[in-house]
């Protein structure tokens, strides 16, 4: 069985994000980029499943700018076998990425697709669900535990108020939640080996996918600075402020 893992290049979580002065987007010039943390968890899970046996190959895909090759190499250093880079002109919408992944799924016929539940840049939380809908594969999103048993997949998902256990028929799409695993770090020889693993470079056109922005960003603004607190004289004053200033009551 093949596992397909999708990874996204995003702004490093340590970087303090700044908004461009024209408020069109966040400023990404000369900013450190990294693999989306949820995607790292997805890669780790695929590697663990392969280590348990029954998985022949892990293919890692990234859709985005050419430099996303770095994130594919990182995933290969952690244990993925082969990479596919699909380059786009500019940022790709969730739907464009889902359609691209659909085209790759049709070509590669993986038994399982694992991806992060969301990317920390735009926090959309859409691509996995869209891919499931487009391909008709079963979906188990926000997974905190995955077990393969023949052609059945048991997914424990994190939902409001507890855990839900699903039994899915494969092929299936699973999106990784934070507690699925703790990703490993790359060993030095594996970093070098990753450079020699095969990597296919494609464009959207090669896969017959048309990039479409169905969502328009109107304005990007930084959150308001948190103001210093004040002391109120009594409960009545507090209630008054909550009602009339904060308008939360």
């Amino acid at each position: 069985m093949k596992i397909l893992v999708a990874v996204k290049r995003v702004i490093d979580y340590n970087v303090k994000v700044r908004v461009k002065s024209d408020q069109s987007d966040v400023d990404l010039s000369n900013v450190k980029m990294a693999m989306n943390p949820f995607c790292e968890i997805a890669v780790e899970e695929a590697v663990r499943l392969k280590e348990k046996g029954g998985v022949d190959e892990i293919i890692v895909v990234s859709v985005g700018e050419a430099k996303s090759e770095e994130q594919i190499r990182s995933a290969m250093a952690l244990g993925a076998d082969r990479g596919i880079l699909v380059t786009t002109d500019g940022p790709a919408s969730s739907l464009t990425v889902a359609k691209t992944l659909k085209a790759i799924v049709e070509k590669e016929q993986p038994g399982l697709v694992i991806m992060g539940k969301q990317a920390i840049d735009t926090d959309n939380n859409q691509t996995g669900q869209m891919l499931s809908a487009l391909t008709g594969m079963a979906q188990g999103v926000f997974a905190s535990e995955i077990t393969i048993d023949g052609d059945k997949l048991t997914v424990i998902r994190e939902i409001d108020g507890g855990l839900q256990t699903l039994s899915l028929k494969m092929p299936a799409v699973v999106t990784a939640d934070l507690r699925l695993n703790e990703p490993r770090y790359a060993k030095l020889p594996d970093i070098m080996k990753a450079k020699r693993k095969p990597l296919d470079k494609l464009t959207l056109a090669d896969l017959g996918v048309e990039a479409r922005q169905t969502v328009k960003a109107v304005k990007v603004a930084a959150p308001a600075d948190r103001k210093a607190g004040i002391k109120v004289a009594d409960v009545a004053a507090l209630v008054d402020k909550l009602k009339n200033e904060a308008k939360v009551l």
Partner: peptide, 21 residues
């Protein structure tokens, strides 16, 4: 010649992770 800035950064990231872990 097999190296690039990416491999350098990966090694540094591993060093940092080992140190913290």
């Amino acid at each position: 010649q097999d190296h690039d800035r990416h491999t350098f950064n990966e090694v540094i990231a591993t060093g940092k992770t080992l140190a913290e872990k």
